[in-house]
Design a binder for these strands. Structure first.
Length: 581
RNA sequence: GCGCCCGUAGCUCAGUGGAUAGAGCGCUCGCCUCCGGAGCGAGAGGUCAGAGGUUCGAAUCCUCUCGGGCGCGCCA
C-alpha cells in the first residue's frame, strides 16, 4: 500500500462528504491536494495541504476549512488524530495498529513489496545502450546500460509492460569503416604485414579475431573479389561478431535486452518511406532552404533547397533535413522511421537513453514524434552524463585493451557487476559521475554499496542466529508475532520508512529516475545500522533477547522486513543482496 | 551567436510547490580497543550563483544576468 495515497483518498472522501452536506463548495479542483510526509516527525505521520489549496476557490479561510476537514477526518478508523497546524496543514497521526499492519504487508510480499499497478499495464519501450557495433562497450555505455536496465525494471515494478530494446546502427558510414578495418586484419591473418593502422580506421585489437575468421572462411580469395564486395563481407561478419562481443559485455553486467532492431532492416523494409509519408500526410514535410548556423558557419556551406521536416512547429530551433545532398536519407530520417516503428509496435511511451553528447538531437526527434502521434510526451530522452574513472582520486586515462577508452569489461572484471551497477545509480542521470575503482570496493561507511549490502548481511546474520536459538523466523511465523512490542522510536521510524517504499517506487517510476532507489536504500541502511548500534549501548535494545521470546520474534519481523525492502530495491537495481560480508 | 544540462555546507551530492533545506566525507568534541567486527555518539558549518516575477507558500515554476559542461547544415 502507498499509505500517502491511502490517506489522500480518505481526505478526498472527507471533502466529498462535506460537499454533500453543503458545508463546502461543490465544484473544486482537487488535483493539487497532496498527502506527504511532514518535515518534522513530531507533527504526525501525514500532512495534508488540502485546506490551503482549496481555500480560495471554496471562499473560506484556510485554517477554518482545515478545522472543518480535520473534524471529519478524525472520525476515520485509521486516524488517531487530525491536527491543524501552521498556515492550514492538517497533520494526521495514524492509529497505533496501522504501522504493524504495514510491516505484515511487507512480510507477506517479500521482494515483491512495492509492486504497483499505477502503470496500468501500459507498454513502455526502453531503448538503451544502442552502441555502434564497432567495438567493445566502454564505461560510458555501461552507465547508459545500467541506467536503462534499472529504469526498465523500475517501470515493470510500477506495473508497466516493458520492452527492453537495442538499436543497431548497422547502416551508416561507420560500419563500412569497420569493414575496412576488419579487411586489414584479414590481410594480417593471412600473413601480410599491415604496419600501423591508418588513421580513420578502428585500431583496436578486438578486430583481430574478425580478421582471423574472415581468413578462415574465405582465404586469400577474399581479396580477389571486387572491393565493394570485400567490404560488404567483412562488414557483415564484423557487425555480427561485434554484436556478440557487446552482448557478452552486457551479459557480464547482467543485462539481456528483448529486442535488437537493425537500422539496415528498418531501411530495407521501407519503414523510412512509410514514416515520411505519414509526416507528409500531416503537411509536415516541405522543400526549403535553411539558414547557415550562426557563429560557426561551415566553410563549404552552400545554400540549396532540401527536403525538410517542420521541427520548428514543435519546439525545435530550425526545420531539419531528411535527405542528404546525394539523395540518401539522413540519419534523422531513419531515426524517425525507427521511433515510429517502436511506437507502431504498441508502445505508448518511448524512452531513449543516450549519452549527453547527443543532447542537441533530442528536440528534433521529440518534435518528429509529436508530429506523428500528436502527443507531446510520447518520447522521453534520458541523457547520461560523462563517467570519469578514477583510482584513489587519480584520473585513469588509457585502456590497456582498446587503446583509447576504458572498456566496461575492464571495470566489471575489477569491481564486479553488483558494485558497478550500484555505483552507476548513485547519481542522477543528468549529473556527471566519478567512478573510483578503489573506493568502489572499500569496506567502509562512505561506500554506499558496502553500506547497503552490509545492512542486508547483518539482517541475514541476525536471523540465522535467532533461528539457532530456536526462534521460528519464517515470514509466516513472524507475521503472527506481536508487533505491538516494537515500541522504540527508532523501530517505529524504521517501519514508517519501509512503509514509504511503495510510494518511492511509484514516484521514481513516474519521473524515470532509478537513482532514487539507491538513495532510499542508503537511507534505509543508515536507519537500520543506527538501530543496531543502539544495541551496543543499551543491551535491552539488541535484536535477540534470549529470555524474551515474543519481543525477539517481533524484532525478527522488523529485521525480515528490512531484508524484504532492501531485497526489493536491489532487485530493481539488478544487484544481488549479500548474505554475509 | 544559438540550444540543452548543471550551479545547494569546505568537498562529493540528495531534495519532481509545503512547515526550521538534508546525507556522506572533512573539521571539532566526547566514547570504544569492542567479532553486535570491518567504529559509535554529538556539534559547528547555508545569501540553495544573483536579480525580478507567479503563489497562501519557491532550492523547486517563469523571465533575465553571471559562471561551468555538452552540442550546433547533409556526419553517425
Amino acid at each position: 500500500m502507498n499509505y500517502f495515497q491511502h490517506f489522500r483518498t480518505i481526505a478526498l472522501d472527507a471533502i466529498a462528504s462535506l460537499q454533500a452536506a453543503g458545508a463546502l463548495t461543490a465544484d473544486l479542483d482537487l488535483s493539487r491536494v497532496a498527502a506527504e510526509a511532514p518535515r518534522d516527525a513530531s507533527h504526525g505521520d501525514v500532512a495534508l495541504n488540502a485546506a490551503m489549496v482549496l481555500a480560495k476557490a471554496a471562499g473560506q479561510k484556510p485554517r477554518e476549512l482545515a478545522m472543518l476537514l480535520a473534524a471529519r477526518l478524525a472520525q476515520h478508523p485509521d486516524i488517531e488524530q487530525a491536527e491543524v497546524a501552521g498556515p492550514g496543514f492538517i497533520n494526521l497521526t495514524a492509529r497505533a495498529a496501522f504501522w504493524p499492519a504495514r510491516l505484515r504487508e511487507i512480510l507477506a510480499a517479500g521482494e515483491a513489496y512495492g509492486d504497483s499497478t499505477v502503470g496500468q499495464g501500459k507498454t513502455v519501450n526502453v531503448e538503451y545502450v544502442s552502441a555502434n557495433p564497432t567495438g567493445p562497450l566502454h564505461v560510458g555505455h555501461g552507465r547508459g546500460a545500467v541506467f536503462g536496465d534499472a529504469l526498465a525494471a523500475l517501470l515493470e515494478k510500477a506495473g508497466h509492460t516493458v520492452v527492453r530494446e537495442y538499436y543497431i546502427n548497422d547502416a551508416g558510414a561507420q560500419v563500412d569503416v569497420l569493414g575496412q578495418s576488419a579487411l586489414l586484419r584479414a590481410r594480417e591473418a593471412l600473413g601480410g604485414t599491415i604496419g600501423e593502422i591508418p588513421a580513420g580506421l578502428y585500431p583496436g585489437d578486438y578486430l583481430v579475431p574478425v580478421g582471423q575468421a574472415l581468413a578462415e572462411a574465405h582465404g586469400a580469395e577474399l581479396f580477389a573479389k571486387p572491393e565493394a564486395e570485400q567490404v560488404a563481407i567483412a562488414r557483415d561478419l564484423a557487425i555480427r561478431m561485434m554484436l556478440d562481443l557487446i552482448r557478452d559485455d552486457l551479459a557480464a553486467v547482467g543485462i539481456r535486452q528483448d529486442v535488437f532492431t537493425s537500422e539496415r532492416a528498418i531501411v530495407a523494409a521501407g519503414r523510412v518511406e512509410a514514416a515520411l509519408r505519414a509526416l507528409e500526410d500531416k503537411g509536415l514535410v516541405y522543400v526549403g532552404v535553411l539558414e547557415p548556423p550562426k557563429g560557426m558557419r561551415p566553410d563549404d556551406w552552400e545554400e540549396r533547397p532540401q527536403t525538410l521536416f517542420r521541427a520548428s512547429d514543435f519546439g525545435d530551433d530550425v526545420d531539419r533535413p531528411l535527405r542528404k545532398s546525394d539523395g540518401a536519407w539522413t540519419y534523422f530520417a531513419t531515426d524517425i522511421a525507427y521511433h515510429f516503428d517502436k511506437y507502431s509496435r504498441g508502445s505508448e511511451t518511448l524512452i531513449d537513453v543516450w549519452g549527453a553528447d547527443h543532447g542537441g538531437y533530442v528536440k528534433r526527434v521529440a518534435a518528429a514524434m509529436q508530429g506523428l502521434t500528436g502527443a507531446r510526451d510520447t518520447l522521453d530522452v534520458k541523457l547520461c552524463q560523462l563517467v570519469r574513472v578514477l583510482r584513489d582520486g587519480e584520473l585513469v586515462r588509457m585502456s590497456k585493451r582498446s587503446g583509447d577508452f576504458i572498456t566496461l569489461r575492464e571495470v566489471v572484471d575489477e569491481v564486479g557487476k553488483d558494485v558497478l551497477r550500484f555505483i552507476m545509480l548513485t547519481r542522477k542521470n543528468d549529473a556527471p559521475l566519478d567512478f573510483d575503482l578503489a573506493r568502489a570496493v572499500d569496506q567502509s561507511r562512505d561506500n554506499p554499496v558496502f553500506y547497503v549490502q552490509y545492512a542486508h548481511a547483518r539482517c541475514r546474520s541476525v536471523l540465522r542466529h535467532a533461528a539457532d536459538e530456536g526462534i521460528d523466523v519464517t515470514p509466516a511465523a513472524l507475521a503472527q508475532s506481536d508487533l505491538g512490542l516494537l515500541t522504540d522510536s527508532d523501530e517505529a521510524g524504521l517501519i514508517k520508512l519501509m512503509a514509504g517504499w511503495p510510494r518511492l517506487v511509484e514516484q521514481a517510476a513516474e519521473v524515470h529516475e532509478p537513482h532514487r532507489i539507491a538513495f532510499y536504500l542508503q537511507d534505509l541502511a543508515a536507519n537500520f545500522h543506527q538501530l543496531w548500534n543502539k544495541g551496543r549501548e543499551d543491551a535491552t535494545l539488541r535484536f535477540i533477547q534470549s529470555d524474551q521470546l515474543a519481543a525477539t520474534q517481533a524484532r525478527m519481523a522488523l529485521v525480515q522486513g528490512v531484508v524484504a525492502v532492501i531485497g526489493s530495491g536491489l532487485k530493481v537495481m539488478g544487484v544481488e543482496p549479500a548474505e554475509a560480508m
